[in-house]
Amino acid sequence: MDLIAMATGFLLILIGLFGALTNRNILRMIVAFAVANTGVNLVLVSVGYMTGRTAPILDSAVPVAEATARVIDPVPQALVLTAIVIGVGVTALMLAYAYRLFKTRGTLDISRYTDLKW
């Protein structure tokens, strides 16, 4: 199952990168980046998965004494939690800049922005 999730995550990264590189509309590029972001999170969580173990929450089903033998690696999960929150921050920032660009130029087509092109 972790292999299925990992393959899906890698495919999502590739699809997102393809969309970000081929689309010309800035909003579509940001949507593609969001898809790639989901793929990265999926890969990271699937690395921590171990077959036959449960979530890293201790309760009556997973007593404290058996924790090491029963729970999944919690470190990648904590990492991905951070990554998701930062990801939405990055997306919000990109959207704000896209809106600002649209307001100054009246277009969202990336090929019209040639100021920094050489």
């Binding site: 999730a5 899906t8 999170n41 969580v45 921590g48 173990r53 449960t54 979530a55 999960q77 939690l81």
Partner: peptide, 10 residues
């Protein structure tokens, strides 16, 4: 999918 992978927090 995260839920299936045992990561309810995520």
């Amino acid at each position: 999918m995260f839920l299936l992978l045992g990561a309810p927090d995520v």
